[in-house]
Every structure is written in C-alpha cells, then in structure tokens.
Design a protein around this nucleic acid. Structure first.
Lengths: 138, 138, 138, 138
DNA sequence: GTGGTCTAGACCACA
DNA sequence: GTGGTCTAGACCACA
C-alpha cells in the first residue's frame, strides 16, 4: 500500500480497512493482522497502526481482545454504516473535483445521468448483440 | 508532487498539467518550465518529462518552439476539451467506486442529487444566517 | 499532581480535569493550559497529555482549535453529564471497597443512611447550640 | 506500594496493614515482617516503620515480643474494630466526594440504593442466564 | 505473542 | 505559539 501526504497515514489505514470491509474482502468477526504485522506490511510504525485501530474501536468498527488480537466487530448494521460513510466521502470528493473544473450543479447532474444511462445501454446491448456496435435505442 | 505506482509517471505528469490548466493555474499561450527545469522540480528523469511533453504536443495541447521553449497551445476550444476529458475520467472513477460499494444506478443518482441539493441549501442558508443552525425551507 | 500506577496516566489526567469541571474550578468555554504547559506542570510527556485531551475531545468535553488552544466545550448539559459520570465511578469504587471489608448490601445501606443522618443532626444541632455537645433528639 | 503526599507515610503504612488485616491477607497472631525488612520492602526509612508499628501497638493492634518480632494482636474483636474503623473512613471520604459534586443527602441515598439493587439483579441474572441480556424483573 | 502505555524528539500545519 | 502526526524504542499486562 502507498500513502499520500494529503492526509494522515492513520486515516488512510482506516479507509483501507473500511474499503476492504465494504468490498467483502473482510468479514464481520474476522481477525485482522496484529498491530505489529500490519505495521511491518505497511512499513509504518506500530504506533501509527495502533492509532488507526484504536480510533476504529472507538467507532465500533473493531473489537480488541488484549493478548488475543483485533477483530472486525460483529455489531449488526456495521457493514451498512461503513458503506454509507464511504459513499459519502467518495461523493464529496467527486463534487469538489467536478466543481474545480467550473461545472455547475446542473451540469454535474446531467453528466452523471448520462454516464449511468450509457452504462445501462452497454449492458442491454451486450445481452442482445454481444459483438455488434451498440446503437442508441429510442 | 507525489506519484503513485498505479500508472506511468509520464501520464501522471500529463494529468497534473491538465488539471492546472482546468483550474486556471496555467493559461493558454503561457510558457511552461523547460523539460530540464520540470524534471528537476518533480525529481524525475528528463526523459520522462520529454515523453509527457511529446504526447501532449501530439494531442495539440502544447506547442514547442525550437530555441524558445514550450507553450500551452492557443487553439480555441482547448480548455473546453481538457475539461471534458478530465470530467470524464473523474466521473468514470466515481462510478466505479460507488459501484464497488454495491450501489445501483438509481441510488447513485439519488445520492448525487441529494448532495447537490444540500450544497444549494448550505449556500442560501449561510447568506442569510452565517452562524445559525440551517433550517430546512419549504 | 501525583499519579498512581493502578491506572494509565492519561486517564488520571482526564479525571483530574473532569473533577475541576464538576467543582466549578473550570468553566465551560474556558481555555485550558496548552498541551506543552500541562505536560510541564504535570511532568509527563506532551504526547500523554495529548492523548488525554484527544479522548476528551472525542467525548465532547473539550474543543481544540489548531493554533489557538484547547477549550472546555460549551455544549449544554455537559456539566450534568460529567457529574453523573463522576458520581458513578465514585459510587462504584465505594461499593467495591465496602464489599472487600465483608459488608453486605444491607449493612452498606445502613451505614450510609446513618452517616447522612448524623450529618443532618450535626447541622441542625450547630444552628441551635453552636458550642454545646450535640444531643440526639427524639 | 505507593505513597502519596497528602498524609504522613507512617499513617499510610498503618492503613496498608489494616487493610491487609480486613481482607484476611493477615491473620491475628501472625508474625509480620521486622521493621528493617518492612523498611527495605517499602523503601522508606526504618524510623518511619517504627513509628507506624509503635502507634499500632498503642492501639492494641500489634504486639511486640522482644527478640521474637512483631505480631498481629490476638485480642478478640480486633478484626471487627479494624473493619468498623476502615468502613468509617471509606464512608467519610465517599460522602465528601459526593457532596463536592453538589449532591444532596437524598440523592446520595438513592444512588447507593440503586447501585446495590442493580448489583443484586446482576447476580441473580447471571446465575440463570450467564450471557444473555439482563431483563428487569418485576 | 498480542495489545496498551509512555517517553524523547522530530517535523508539520495553522494563525 | 498551539495543536497534529510520526518514529524509535522501552516496558507492562494479559493469555
């Protein structure tokens, strides 16, 4: 994993784990690497990993058992919460970036709709005519 | 500037310059740093910068005048093209990320609309009552 | 201030500040010593003070303004919450200690009632007869 | 053992021994460490230990047999006296602390009763259903 | 071995 | 100056 300088490393570690959870690469109840293992793998100081783990424990995302290790929480609704949070931050960043190109709310809305529509077409098109050029339908 | 390992550095340099253009930090017709200067500033090999400059020249984004330096093209419509291209790639990445959270097209659409609406409210609200709580208006 | 080894120093710092708040020695909105000042005064590492401050910020007890300092939160109900929390921990420790002397729930209850009654008598007694021996009244 | 600066060390040694007696860690009739041993263990001056032992002998808590050592007194009722004394000081400190939070006698009484009641519930609850949520019973 | 605390000290960001 | 992050490394507590 690579870190950028725009945000603290411990936050990037938090986001890294949240994304793995959202994608199903980590399961509720599962043991995650120990602080030392994770620190070695990511090549950061164990204290930095600990800070990430500790904050996620405060948020109810992880549970730590002294002497045993750290686990993804089993709390019901956890996965949904994480997804909502991640979606929110992805959305926020997206809008900031589009805005910085000088696009208005209306333009952003239209571009998103257009992209999603094309995606749909792509799918139906493929289903019927896997190799042909995709014609717009009306 | 920081580079990540996901894409070639010369492409990251290209995107870096395009973003500066889109944000207005670079103007059409303006001279940009020489290949050597840029290489020193970004701490990369001059050949890498050369490749980025060459590709952008092919795309009609830069113009090189032998003995004078490299300039942002004055071609009309350039800025618009760049913005469309950048918007496209931001949009594409956005949709991929939202999809990876398991969101449907309808959900993405709604979230975007919601976020843009809230942005609007935030503005009007601030204008009238800079520190107060923002009341929903109806 | 003195620390004992039974609990982490950062928690003792937290309790120290909560007690000052409960006793009215600190007021909501008031600036508290900077991390460095507090560390020097308590003779601990600034990181330890920071941990205490950070946890109290998470709990909504403090607010920090980068470059300006750390302040007691102005959130309504804060004082009451702190008092309830402190009362709970004092009570818990009290019961544990009384239990370790082999006292039953009934005995603890009676001793508390007795002590509070005597306190009352002490007061009324003093009011009437400031210097005399306090006679039990019936 | 740790000493704090609020009271003389010899008093803290006295309280330390009384608590051990009350908890059954020391038995009536039992030999306790010599003054020199105790001083070495607690890292205090032997004179300080001597003062503590002397006061406890005056109180009838210890008995010194020249050439044999110092023993916990065998006097009947000793244990009970010690417990009453300790309970009294714990109780006193408890009430002072609760008072300093601005709690009235009635409030203190209620909190104590509540805490003791909950303790009871906890026990019966555990006995029947060790891991389940504890339901209020009526 | 695993997590928890603490120190010493460097360097950064905001004002 | 004030808070924020990070490293290196020591030592403790639990199992």
């Amino acid at each position: 994993m690579q870190f950028d300088n725009s945000r603290p490393i411990y936050m990037q570690i938090m986001e890294f784990i949240k994304k793995q959870l959202a994608r199903g690469e980590l399961q509720p109840g599962q043991k995650i690497p120990s602080q030392r293992e994770m620190a070695a793998e990511l090549q950061v100081n164990p204290n930095t990993v600990q800070r990430a783990y500790r904050e996620m424990e405060t948020m109810g995302l992880l549970e730590t058992l002294r002497g045993q290790g750290t686990f993804i929480s089993n709390r019901p609704g956890l996965l949904q919460e994480i997804k909502v949070e991640l979606a929110g931050s992805i959305l926020k960043r997206f809008i900031v970036e589009m805005r910085s190109l000088g696009l208005s709310a209306v333009e952003i809305r239209n571009l998103v709709n257009q992209a999603l529509d094309q995606e749909e077409e792509g799918k139906s098109c493929k289903a019927i005519n896997p190799r042909g050029t995709c014609q717009p339908h009306w």
